[in-house]
């Protein structure tokens, strides 16, 4: 993945998570991956288009998903969720949108033009994601609620 793309994603993930959840966020070591990756249970995905093609995927366990959604909701004086219901899904979708949106804005300022697709959310057991010949950058984020893995795969349009 192009070097210039890395920081905007890492920074906005950190910024948004700290800001929205008001918790301490720790960034893990970045690494690259390409083989099929097992998914943790809840995944929000946003496609990228424009100068590039690719996608950003936010992956976490169901439990973490519920806690993160609750955290976001309570910080906005709303009731926490007990289950991965409609409200929880919408909240996580919004979180993914905020992070990706900020990253894309940063990239735009650097002169890269990206468009976003509307986010989608997947839930289920034993899921895995694979895109052959498409290397993904993994940005692990450690929160008190658990781990969110941000999986960014972008390639230049030939």
């Amino acid at each position: 993945m192009r070097v210039e793309y890395i920081n905007p994603f890492v920074e906005s993930a950190y910024n948004i998570l700290t800001e929205v959840l008001k918790v301490e966020v720790q960034r893990g070591e970045l690494y690259l991956k390409n083989a099929a990756m097992p998914m943790l249970g809840v995944a929000a995905i946003i496609g990228l288009a424009g100068d590039v093609e690719g996608r950003v995927l936010f992956d976490m366990t169901r439990e973490t998903g519920i806690k993160v959604a609750s955290g976001m909701l309570t910080s906005m004086d709303m009731d926490p969720v007990e289950d991965l219901n409609e409200m929880a899904r919408a909240t996580l979708t919004e979180l993914a949108n905020m992070i990706t949106g900020q990253a894309v804005t940063k990239l735009h300022n650097l002169g890269f033009k990206f468009d976003l697709t509307p986010p989608a959310i997947f839930t289920g057991e034993n899921m895995s994601v694979s895109d052959s010949n498409f290397e993904a950058l993994i940005v692990p984020m450690d929160l008190p609620m658990g781990k969110i893995e941000i999986n960014v795969a972008i390639r230049e349009r030939a």
Binding site: M1, R2, V3, I6, S132, N133, E135, L137
Partner: peptide, 9 residues
């Protein structure tokens, strides 16, 4: 410049 591993294809 890319952050990339040849072995990932």
């Amino acid at each position: 410049f890319e952050f990339s591993d040849v072995l990932n294809g």
